[in-house]
Design a binder for these strands. Structure first.
Lengths: 308, 308
DNA sequence: TTGTAAGCGTTATCAA
DNA sequence: TTGATAACGCTTACAA
């Protein structure tokens, strides 16, 4: 059993600098105008000598501000989430906050667990990356009274700031692209719609565009066996003259066959904005609850160019 | 400016249950045998009524144990890192620890920043996923006196527990596979070797295997312009009869062309073991510093099957 | 079986 | 300009 040396405390510093804790605290909090040059120097020296770092635990306890922000992610292995995370992380750093990341692995119990956990560490706000999160899980979040911002997905009947993609615009862009490229039958694939706003918005835009092109067959399918049936109904044989556009850019999209056309989301930007919004709430902003959407970008590759 | 209701404290609970803080604390810490059934019930009720959650800040301050573990990752967008992270996260949860994840983005300054940050939150130990981390950065870590475990990569001249892949075995497997499949000229590609043990170990195993096959041409190259030169020297034209094996399994490996053969690392397992090792150190284990290696698995796809 | 009081490392109040 | 001193919410001797 080895035992590590205890950290230096503010009292140690005060003692080494032959002064009181108050002055050291002032030094730490930038109230330098209250300190004589001499005292300032002594404190500086003592801190260096003891390589003292203030305890955020004690600080948080006393001030009630922990400078901690919680991030709840449904699926940490999702590339979209990783990108968003990266944006949030950068924004946190810039604003002097620290991120407590939690991965719920799409499990309801974990969701609860982490929500309580974050609360017990007194995070000042949370960002929820709801991509892939099941609905019954999201509803738990409503209980939390913390400043909170959702990413990508809204929670039905729960007013909350949301930052995400302009789904309608993006779906419209993608749909028109296919039509313009001469495809004569379109299939819209989606996970079960449920009350997930992103899916509904994309589908609605798709249908809207379709009304302008009565000659183009179209169909909607949930990602189940129903897909096969729909393919059959629009008389399309998988593997021959079929186009493909996916939401979310993928690292390997250019490598798979002729390349897959994707609709790229400004993920980093989304993460960054979400964080700024939480911080605004933490600082007490009472702006009306809002939805902030960003435009996507269509990255055209071989999969949406008709074969000759 | 909205103001949120203050959290209930242990005193509030004690008051509501008509008892003292001590009993509530005992209840919270599972010392139930010391409480009468009646008192236990009152406390339970009060906690529920106030939806009280103990403050980990105060707890950590008092006990000196924060149940926090820091994770330093060089590149959060690296799929390998994400997998490892996932394993660590699961192990943390099981052991009742919470993870503070930090992404250094391969930047030296951030490394320093996060090291101090983790220390100021009094994490009880750290795991460093050094994949992609520059050497001069790793050396900063030596300063930390915390229980620490490295993943994948060692730090030169710094004795520390390491968990990772059995690089020699893996490189040997991959090399033999190529030879067995009839390739007659092998090229070993690597980032600059530097003093990075993983790269050196893999290269050494490669050379070792090569001594057994004098008829097979081979060459080593750093991932620079030198690659082109080496390709030329072994008289190989990129695009025709060339095989490929990559370290680390990739989600899309099967989708790219004929598929890319990869050497899959047991990433999750590695993360999990690393965490268990840190915890052992936290609990005071003074086992000798050790290196724990796992075997990789060769996932054979088209890229290592010779074209006819 | 229950409760009182001291103290963890900070910051805030107030007096010197 | 400085510095005691009292909290912050919890755990833990120690008493009762």
């Amino acid at each position: 059993m080895k035992t590590r040396p205890p950290r230096a405390t503010i009292s140690d510093v005060a003692h080494a600098a032959r002064t009181g804790k108050t002055s050291v605290s002032r030094y730490l909090n930038g109230e330098l105008h209250l300190l004589s040059a001499d005292l300032k120097a002594r404190i500086e020296q003592a801190i260096a000598d003891l390589s003292y770092r203030p305890s955020q635990m004690a600080r948080g306890l006393k001030r009630g501000r922990t400078r901690l922000i919680g991030l709840i992610i449904a699926d940490i292995t999702n590339p979209y989430s990783v990108d968003v995370m990266s944006g949030i992380e950068a924004a946190c750093r810039e604003q002097g906050f620290t991120l407590l990341m939690c991965n719920t692995n799409n499990e309801v119990d974990l969701e609860q667990h982490y929500l309580q956990l974050l609360s017990s560490y007194q995070v000042e706000g949370i960002v929820v990356n709801a991509v892939g999160m099941r609905e019954e899980v999201l509803s738990h979040l409503k209980q939390s009274l913390l400043p909170m911002v959702l990413i990508d997905r809204k929670i039905p009947d729960f007013p909350c700031d949301v930052v995400g993609l302009n789904n309608a615009e993006a779906a419209e862009t993608a749909t028109r692209h296919l039509v313009d490229n001469g495809y004569y039958a379109l299939l819209f694939l989606s996970e079960p719609l449920g009350s997930v706003n992103t899916r509904r918005e994309r589908l609605q835009a798709f249908r809207q565009v379709m009304t302008a092109y009565p000659q183009v067959q179209h169909e909607n399918a949930e990602l189940t066996l129903q897909v096969a049936r729909s393919l059959q109904r629009i008389n399309l044989h998988w593997g021959s003259d079929i186009g493909l556009i996916g939401f979310d850019e993928l690292e390997w999209a250019a490598l798979a066959g002729v390349g897959i056309t994707t609709l790229k989301q400004p993920t980093w930007q989304i993460g960054c904005s979400a964080l700024q919004r939480v911080i605004a709430r933490i600082e007490g902003s009472d702006l009306p609850i809002a939805e902030q959407v960003f435009s996507g970008e269509l990255i055209v590759r071989g999969s949406s160019q008709p074969l000759r």
